[in-house]
């Protein structure tokens, strides 16, 4: 499961200010070739490298193995200068 947690406790003027927003997407939906094609067309999608078709199943398998060892693994942890936080877990 890809879990994206967005905490907007400080500095944000958005409607979710002061709350945590959690987006959960199963890995097989987030990490597949169709999702990749869509993501590449979105703003910032140019940063996503060209990924061979057979790579994503290998990646999903590796993630499953890694999660057995690192139970509370956080892939990306971002904290902005004004205190907003984003965490991505796989």
């Amino acid at each position: 499961m890809m879990k994206i947690t967005i905490s907007t406790n400080n500095g944000s003027d958005t409607a979710i200010k002061g709350k945590d927003m959690v987006i959960r997407i199963p890995n097989f939906l987030a990490l597949n070739n169709t999702a990749l094609k869509i993501a590449k067309k979105q703003p910032g999608g140019q940063h996503i490298p060209d990924i061979p078709k057979e790579f994503l199943p290998k990646l999903r398998k590796a993630i499953r193995q890694v999660k057995k060892i690192h139970k509370n693994w956080v892939l990306v942890d971002v904290e902005s200068a004004d205190g907003e936080k984003v965490q991505v877990k796989l």
């Binding site: 990924i51 061979p52 790579f55 290998k58 990646l59 590796a62 993630i63 193995q65 890694v66 060892i69 690192h70 693994w73 956080v74 892939l75 990306v76 942890d77 971002v78 904290e79 902005s80 200068a81």
Partner: peptide, 19 residues
């Protein structure tokens, strides 16, 4: 003042490098 931290288990990095 922004902080980004990426925690990449080495087996995953290896999958990337092999691909």
């Amino acid at each position: 003042g922004d902080h980004v931290r990426v925690n990449l288990p080495l087996p995953l990095l290896k999958v990337f490098l092999n691909s």
